[in-house]
Design a protein around this nucleic acid. Sequence first.
DNA 1: CCCCCTCCTTACTCTAGAGTAAGGAGGGGG
DNA 2: CCCCCTCCTTACTCTAGAGTAAGGAGGGGG
Lengths: 202, 202
Amino acid sequence: MAGGTKRLPRAVREQQMLDAAVEVFSENGFHNTSMDAIAARAQISKPMLYLYYGSKDELFAACISREGQRFVEALTPAGDPGLTPRDQLRVALESFLGFVDAHRNSWMVLYRQAMSQQAFAGQVRSSRDRLIELTAHLLESSTRDPEPGTDFVIMAVALVGAGEAVADRIAGGEIDVEKAADLLENLAWRGLAGKKRTDQHG
Amino acid sequence: MAGGTKRLPRAVREQQMLDAAVEVFSENGFHNTSMDAIAARAQISKPMLYLYYGSKDELFAACISREGQRFVEALTPAGDPGLTPRDQLRVALESFLGFVDAHRNSWMVLYRQAMSQQAFAGQVRSSRDRLIELTAHLLESSTRDPEPGTDFVIMAVALVGAGEAVADRIAGGEIDVEKAADLLENLAWRGLAGKKRTDQHG
DNA sequence: CCCCCTCCTTACTCTAGAGTAAGGAGGGGG
DNA sequence: CCCCCTCCTTACTCTAGAGTAAGGAGGGGG
């Protein structure tokens, strides 16, 4: 063996590759990332990438898949049936924003990446749609007397969209999770112009 | 001359090229669009593209620039000082969503495209930031007694984010402009769960 | 002890597609 | 009438980077 590379079991190597791929993809985007760059980051030779993942597309898909799963897992606390719907929404908000905060490097850009990739958009949209459905459900449960024609799904779309926009600012370090969660919660229940629920300044 | 191509003045040809480029870029994304494809769509030979625009990047930048300008222009009616801030916001919302509805093919994808291109993200973000500033300003003007610590910019970020998410659904034909504008207006002033302002069903 | 499976590498091939070289024709101005 | 500017084309070149061929070494199981 030429390189200083150690023999490792496939499962371990695969995760290392995925780690490297997520990093480089998120830094440079799908098209501006070469398999050579990923191989270099993972400290492995390129043919290994092809041996384990087959192609660049499949490797990227594997990244999306793993990160998407983690994302969904991060949101499970919000499913706690012991909480009121409103608190569930609060927890969902914090989980979502907390996830972005903790995984800015890996997830947020991947999310934006994959979303605008159209070969992979479908794959991401499914994670995202689950989030929207969850949100719609919580909104519906928390609304005391909904009007007959109310479309909770489109409301959820709006709220999740707002969440994504705010999440970008979190990833950019311009605002912290708590402040963002407060803002979005108030947005949902009272509108932007409404009074804040938690109210301490200075 | 071999092709059936007619001699046209540069200014005219440039616009045709831009039209073609916007179409193809929005259909396939920046990286999945070849200069050959654009040339074919514009019914012109590839060297003309290079003669007038220099490179693929510059051509794309020219697209962003033209569409961005049109986008900003579409929003100017909202600046009418004869309107109340709240009506200005309503007009801005309708202008924005109306623009997306009318230019789904060209703009929305370009917007998403360029935004996630990082070589061009800055260029788009500037149009977008103008939109956010405008929105923040309108929110601030329409709020009767704002709390001292209120961050109108981040509110505007959330609202614009919601608008973009809803705009995607408009582009997808899942909802119409009026309904979306109603939703977003109510979102801004009353929250998702609040009663609709306009209130007719079935 | 040796077989063979898995892990791993160096050193290629091949093509899409960005960008260019070289030259031709219309047509207005002198 | 002819010069020359602008518009336009065919037919290339060149490279980044996806993907592959061929082979080598560790080490557990028989």
